[in-house]
Computed example of a mutant assay.
Amino acid sequence: MAARFLLLAILALASSHALASDPSQLQDFCVADPGSNVFVNGFVCKDPKMANAEDFFSSGLDKPGNTGNKLGSNVTLLDVTQIPGLNTLGISVARLDFAPYGFLPPHTHPRATELLTLLEGTLYVGFVASNNQLFTKVLNKGDVFVFPQGLIHFQFNKGKTNAVAISGLSSQNPGVILVPNAVFGANPPISDDLLAKAFQLDKKTVDWLQAQFSMGNSN
């Protein structure tokens, strides 16, 4: 099982790198220096002579994430903040864990295409194109699905057992915007008059939704 997990992870990462959207590096590597006071689009490189193997390493992605939350899901992301050696390489990886009937609500990755490989269980997944066309698929073990950069998408475990997936993302810092949280949990809040008109709801319903997704209640 461990060997199969590693093989699928490598394949997902390799495919994601082919779709990389971050700027290409002009040298072998540019290990991030998070302690630098210089602000750039990404991270300043530390002296290559100071780089070591730990800058390119992480462990524990074989460990299940905690799905004991309202969504019944967990994302373990390894991006440039966990692996400094990813700086400028245009790639990151995530492990997705789902309890039975757990899900990740509609969300986007503003800077990355996502390539998901299902390792265990069954997932119902989909994304919405800019013309509002919905693309969905039921995935089984070993299946792969692509979520194009910036498009709203979701994953739902429709099975009675846990589901596990690995995702390659074409950015060192893909970002994530949860649509319900962004709309109803913005800080400061979006005007309830505006949201009532946008969603054709009464203000009382909008106020209730905003209370559910406020920063203090969003976990």
Rank of each mutant, 00 (worst) to 15 (best):
T88S: 15
G159T: 14
I91C: 15
N69G: 08
F199G: 05
L115A: 00
G72I: 01
K158M: 13
D207N: 14
T88M: 15
L116N: 06
F56T: 02
G168C: 03
G159Y: 11
T76N: 05
L195D: 03
H153G: 06
H107A: 11
K70C: 12
L11W: 13
S170D: 11
P23V: 12
F135N: 05
P100G: 01
P64Y: 09
S130N: 08
L77A: 00
F184H: 01
D22C: 05
S170C: 09
F103L: 13
E120F: 02
A186Q: 04
L209F: 09
F39A: 11
S21R: 05
A12G: 06
F154T: 13
G85T: 08
G159N: 10
L89G: 01
F199W: 05
L7F: 11
V38W: 03
Q149V: 13
N219R: 11
S171P: 05
T81S: 14
F154G: 11
K46A: 06
R111N: 04
L151A: 08
N66M: 08
Q133D: 14
P180D: 01
L134Y: 09
K70H: 14
G65N: 02
F29E: 05
I190E: 08
L201E: 00
S36M: 03
F156P: 05
A112Q: 03
G42E: 13
P188A: 04
L26C: 09
T122E: 13
I166V: 14
N173H: 15
G121W: 01
G90D: 03
N181T: 07
K203H: 12
L89T: 12
T161F: 04
A99P: 01
L178M: 12
S73T: 15
T88F: 13
F184Y: 10
T117E: 03
R95W: 03
G68P: 04
G159V: 13
N217E: 08
P189Y: 07
V44A: 13
P100D: 02
K141M: 06
P48D: 01
D143P: 06
E120Q: 14
F56E: 01
T117F: 09
P48I: 00
T108Y: 02
K46Q: 12
L201C: 00
S171A: 03
G216N: 15
V31K: 00
V38K: 15
N66A: 04
A51S: 04
N132L: 13
T136R: 12
N74P: 00
Y101E: 10
H109Q: 08
N41W: 12
E120Y: 07
V80I: 02
L194R: 03
S92H: 12
A186K: 00
D143G: 10
Q149T: 15
K46V: 11
H107S: 03
G85S: 02
E114R: 09
